[in-house]
Amino acid sequence: MSSETGEDRTLRVKDVRKAWPRADGGRRVVLDAVSFELEAGGTLCVVGGSGSGKTTLLHILSGITAPDAGSVSLGREDLTAMSESGRDRFRARHIGYMFQTFNLVGMLSAVENVALPLVFGGASPSAAKHRAGVLLERLSMSDRADQRPAALSVGEQQRVALARAVVADPWLILADEPTASLDPRNAADALALLESEATRTGASLVIVTHDPAVRGRYARHLVIGDGS
């Protein structure tokens, strides 16, 4: 599959395994031979119980964590073959990550938080800030752009986190429990925004959730943990 520009942006996950060390010295397998493909612009909903390895999978897809075995590639780029700094650079440019707890940087304003991936990706400070400002305006957040996260409501923080995930026009957006902190109405609005931004940027979307309502919105699911 390819994007509108003809560039191959398919996410390919093949036989990914990951185990964490246990207190007794053994290892607990959290991901065991996970494989799937997600075409550019597609959406995948990852479901599973607590401790099933959903977040670990997102860390591996984003290059934050390396798998013990298997491969992850986005288009022609094989993340598992890259060095750590190569994965960092690739993540800044092509992968947007929306965390369950938003993980906004408290000392920075909303617009500065949004601009971070662009700054680390090498954009000029003024261009990064301008682009972040435009995006916040589109999300109806322009009047809150200079506020620190602590001064924002949960819904507003969620939109800042979304803006930060999509500001670099990523190929892949990873959303970890994007509605966990929101009431049902705000949750639906947030998902609609996420989907529209993914559509606008042409990004593939991987959503991790344990919420049945979210699960019900999407046709394609990956169940991990029990019965992956």
Binding site: S85, D88, R89, A92, L116, P117, F120, A168
Partner: peptide, 16 residues
């Protein structure tokens, strides 16, 4: 450490 981890997660390299 969490702040550093967030910066890394949004694309900051170790060197940065």
């Amino acid at each position: 450490l969490r702040e550093i981890a967030i910066l890394r997660a949004v694309g900051a390299r170790r060197g940065q």
